[in-house]
Amino acid sequence: MTEPKLSEDIKKVVEKWRNKKGSLVMILHEIQNAYGYVPRETSLELSKYLDVPLAQIYEVITFYNYFKLEKPGTHRIAVCMGTACYLKGAPVILQELKELLDVEEGHNTKDGLFALDVVRCLGCCGLAPVMMIDSKVYGKVKKEEIMNILSEYGKEE
């Protein structure tokens, strides 16, 4: 994943889709796929190239959950809020994560190391409450363990 420097890249994408139906959504798709999110600078440039108001681009981006406005955190934490996990204390886990990381769900920590998300049943209700970091599953999570778990994901990586 490269940092968006853009003008040239965007031009290529735009040229590919220009004058085709639904081109704005397709262009945004390509950008989302390339960077994992749609950077604001890219949207601003796109707005100029396509002569489409930025507000219209944002209407599209925020309408579909697929598009993200923030650069994804290096590690994605997914806290399960399915019924089983919910009953077994997932809200406490979520709250602890928010406090420890000083972050709201759907957002990244300031250092960009973690992204905190809430998800539906992860399919391992027996292990409730469950959380995942990247592709690793943590079951029967206790509030006191969270600090330790997080420390496995150091900055140096």
Partner: peptide, 8 residues
């Protein structure tokens, strides 16, 4: 185009 409807 200052105002828009965001999200859904």
């Amino acid at each position: 185009w200052a105002l828009s409807f965001l999200e859904r």
